[in-house]
């Protein structure tokens, strides 16, 4: 099956529109990039695009009600919503420290979810 994927390179502000021609999931041509970086980017975007997911998780007894979190490394792009679903139900207890593992294997990606902020316990 032949298909053309249209991408915008994020390598620099030029933001070249890149067309990647594919045949049966194999890249047959990359056009529109101004430099090599665009090609590398396009290759990765069509074969295994990844992203870091950042969000928040509820905290009980914290000075603020949520703590910010991220996936420790990038995860496959198509798993973003799986990670979000696994975060949604979570609740942690203060204190939370930067780098604390909040959830192992988030959304079945094999990547841990870690806190990116310190949330101390509410005194009162």
């Amino acid at each position: 099956m032949e298909e053309t994927r249209n991408l915008t390179c994020i390598g620099c502000p030029l933001g070249c529109s890149i067309q990647v021609e594919m045949e049966n999931d194999k890249i047959t041509g990359i056009f529109g990039n101004t430099c090599k970086r665009g090609e590398v980017y396009a290759r990765k975007e069509v074969t295994h695009p990844t992203r870091i997911v950042t969000s928040t998780v509820c905290v009980e007894h914290g000075i603020i009600p949520v703590v910010s979190v991220k996936t420790e490394t990038d995860i496959p792009k198509e798993k973003i919503m799986d990670v979000m679903r696994s975060i949604k139900k979570l609740k942690v207890y203060a204190p939370v420290h930067t780098g604390d593992v909040i959830l192992e294997n988030a959304g079945g990606t094999g990547v841990n979810l870690v806190a990116t902020k310190e949330v101390l316990t509410k005194t009162k």
């Binding site: 950042t54 928040t56 910010s68 991220k70």
Partner: peptide
């Protein structure tokens, strides 16, 4: 809370906090 901070300074992608 998103990532993308500090690429120039720390050569890593940090979140704002």
């Amino acid at each position: 809370i998103h990532n993308g901070f500090g690429l120039h300074t720390f050569k890593e992608e940090l979140t704002g906090p």
